[in-house]
Design a protein around this nucleic acid. Structure first.
Lengths: 114, 114
DNA sequence: CAATCATATTCCCATTTCGGAATATGTCAA
DNA sequence: TTGACATATTCCGAAATGGGAATATGATTG
């Protein structure tokens, strides 16, 4: 079995960079498909397909207005993602000490990993 | 061009449920591959492959101890994910009013979406 | 060195994914 | 109704994914 269907999982849907861009673009206010196409510089069919995926997962909502369709990010659907990531917040402090320790061990910091 | 290489993007790496399970399992403390195999009930080669993906993206770190290899989640590498999701936090309040409004419009709340 | 435990890698395969091009559907205007 | 605009869908091909089975590498012990 290959990867989980992109249409059933928020994580997989968000794995695509273009879809992330779309979500960011549609978060402040609803936008036309054409607007998205122009903003992202992508092909229209491609955008429509991505929007379908996002809509199937519930990450965006659509509203028809005449000839145009206005899409808008459903930010609530992103909470599972945020919540999952937030679980690790608990361990950040714990591991921060390690990072700090390493940083202090190498004071001339510029030469990280070129 | 098909999907983005799972090995170059944290988002894609985390798209796989088993890999998420591994990350959660390895967050509190480092664990042996065998331990992961038992904990997840997955096949050993499968786990090793997932670990390789996670390590290539920097989501886990490995340490050899005799015959065994101890893996540990690098929680810092999860920050991009968290930060990206956190961008939408700003809009949650805004959209919460809509949800609230809808909830108040339907007082007999039990029948949500079973 | 041989045997064994622990982990990694390779090979094969069914399935999915995305982009591009072409085409279909839907909606408004004249 | 015809035509133009906006969006959606289908078909195609190249590339990638993850599981399973087999095998390879690494390290320890006798």
């Amino acid at each position: 079995m290959p990867r989980l269907a992109t249409t059933s999982d928020v994580f997989t849907a968000v794995a695509e960079p273009r879809r992330r861009d779309i979500l960011v673009y549609l978060a402040p206010r609803e936008q036309t498909v054409t607007a998205i196409v122009k903003a992202l510089g992508a092909a229209q069919p491609s955008v429509s397909k991505h929007l379908k995926v996002l809509r199937d997962v519930g990450l965006v909502e659509a509203r028809r207005e005449g000839r145009q369709v206005l899409y808008r990010t459903n930010v609530d659907a992103l909470r599972p993602l945020h919540d999952w990531a937030a679980v690790f917040e608990r361990f950040w402090r714990h591991q921060l000490s390690r990072v700090k320790e390493r940083a202090e061990r190498a004071p001339s910091g510029k030469g990280g990993k070129p």
